[in-house]
Design a binder for these strands. Sequence first.
DNA 1: CCAATTTCTTAACCTACATCAAGTGCCGCC
DNA 2: GGCGGCACTTGATGTAGGTTAAGAAATTGG
Lengths: 194, 194
Amino acid sequence: MPLDLILHNLEKHIHLTREEQEIFTAYLQPKKIKRKQYLLTYGEVCKYSAFVTAGCLRGYTVDKSGIEHVLSFAPADWWIADMYSLISQKPGIQNIEALEDTDVLLLSKVNQEKLYTQIPKFEHFFRILTENSLVASQQRLIDSLSLTAEERYNNFCKRYPTLIDHLPQKQIASYIGVTPEFFSRMKSVIVRKK
Amino acid sequence: MPLDLILHNLEKHIHLTREEQEIFTAYLQPKKIKRKQYLLTYGEVCKYSAFVTAGCLRGYTVDKSGIEHVLSFAPADWWIADMYSLISQKPGIQNIEALEDTDVLLLSKVNQEKLYTQIPKFEHFFRILTENSLVASQQRLIDSLSLTAEERYNNFCKRYPTLIDHLPQKQIASYIGVTPEFFSRMKSVIVRKK
DNA sequence: CCAATTTCTTAACCTACATCAAGTGCCGCC
DNA sequence: GGCGGCACTTGATGTAGGTTAAGAAATTGG
């Protein structure tokens, strides 16, 4: 059940009483997104954090020559948002699209801030969530500065083993920062090595 | 005065009473770091967040072929730490070095966590600080994926105008992710364009 | 189950940036 | 105040990964 999944996700860092759980779940808004539909598009102000209960989303930007760069994948049990836009409430820079039919629970920024004051444990939870995202983002930056495409691919395989055979490979190529053509070549070289 | 600077830094996001200020400042530990000395080195566990009151630090990693990658500069009024190590308390991946004689105020992880429970406003403050770092880190990742070296240099100039003529240019080269040689060439091309 | 579309592969050629090397200028230190 | 070393420049050459193009394979939606 979707609510169990999100409550279990919170339990990783904070423990809630029954009443607190009820306050929290009352703030959530379920939503279904069909494959290739968008939760958020470039230029929109991001008003929600989304928690995925089924399916998979991808967040990406488009650069000025039209190339897409995947910033994150969000399979079940992950949070996703355009943090820049969510924080600043300015027009966003990301598109968040469903790679398959997906169910999310939305927590509005307004409700999220209510939680911070009503139940301070939520400030704790989201601080930790943000810290972990920061570390992941920094690590990815380091990888993009210091590793070859092949090494980044290997890291990706280790870190997201469940995603790997599930995702069109052009999405993986975009995530690790190469063209689909180069990715294909690279893969065939890897196979030949073995 | 150093304490004024850090208290003013906090005021950007939270308001403290006199007593709270005193509790906070009692947790701080001043330290001086001479040019080319280290606040933290690779493999050490990071036990402190550092707030710079004078001078300038740089945080960098060294990749397996020995190349340094600057992750952040911390001039006066900035916070710096190896977040990965600080959070996980595992051996760190960053070196934090003084680019000139520098004064910092150290806040130990232990004291930081005491603050979270004693004065919940600090959880709020560090959540926001972390959110802002996350957005900056994501933006830098996007830049490194989608911009040329010259565009990244222009961004750097806009974002850190005070640092630019203050820093050895090999440090800037490392930050934007090119070799000193290429950076030098690039600069001379830019000059010629004008 | 078929047509349309999207995804993947392969190949030839191109470019941004790296590497190596040699030289110049300059700043800090005894 | 001179010299040792570091920071910067410039040139020749190397390479990871991009671009363009065209066909083969796989999905998907009807």
